[in-house]
Design a protein around this nucleic acid. Structure first.
Lengths: 127, 127
DNA sequence: CTGTTATTTAACCGTTGTGTTAATTAACGG
DNA sequence: CCGTTAATTAACACAACGGTTAAATAACAG
């Protein structure tokens, strides 16, 4: 699986409020699917599918336990997302420094960044 | 604006690959809308709307500059998202410790977390 | 003024996501 | 076995999303 696909799944998964609530709930300990569903008004199948999305994003792991299915947080997804955010957050910090340098060297405005060598690329994976 | 709404906008915004690409691009410096659109195959109006979404999420700030509109990263959104992730990531770490303690005190399995006092709540904001 | 460039607004449309209910599979308990 | 509980699969409805093109707005340049 490509790094892009992983990031995409993680942020798509976290975009849904119900799924974020599930992550929050699981942060305080494991739970079965039915237990997870209880506080919500939505149906069990809906929760079940949310869990599959979370699992595909490496945000949740499920483990069969007889009749039950115990769900736990999977740190990997959270970690990956946090790294993505931090990377661009810090990158931005650095470029601020570079911008500062620029201003100090008496250049009236930052370069227009025109004529870059980006190859045209499509809007990536469908959604 | 509630904290929940802010988080929701941020993760919804980051769920789209085009919007993440814009964030990435802006990490290396400001750009106008047309400049941002260039590497993509999608139309300018599409980019324009993506930018409004990013702005509403405090991930991008726009500033009029005559005929142009200069776009820059807004650290606030990235920061907020990173904090959200870290909070639950660390919370999970702590509860692992608590789980460990539990196991060491010869309890066969972690408590079932039944009969919690969660009030039933709906699936929050529409999408 | 007039034309050109930059960007947004409006109207529309196909796809995807999320919810539902009904039916199915799996495991337990008498 | 049989009934019950846990969870998933299937089939469907509907809102929201992200794309498009055409038209509008804004600022600049002759």
């Amino acid at each position: 699986m490509t790094a892009f696909a992983r990031i995409d799944r993680i942020f798509s998964a976290l975009a849904d409020p119900t799924r974020r609530a599930i992550v929050q709930r699981l942060a305080s300990g494991e739970a079965t699917v039915t237990e997870l569903a209880r506080p919500f008004t939505i149906s069990l199948p809906a929760i079940s599918r949310h869990l599959r999305v979370l699992e595909a994003a490496a945000l949740v792991r499920q483990e069969r336990d007889g009749q039950f299915r115990r769900c736990r947080l999977d740190t990997e997804g959270l970690q990956t997302a946090a790294e993505w955010l931090d990377f661009y957050r810090h990158f931005w910090g650095e470029s601020l420094d570079r911008l500062d340098e620029h201003l100090k060297s008496s250049v009236p405005r930052a370069p227009k960044t025109k004529g870059r060598s980006h190859g045209k690329y499509k809007a990536h994976g469908r959604r």
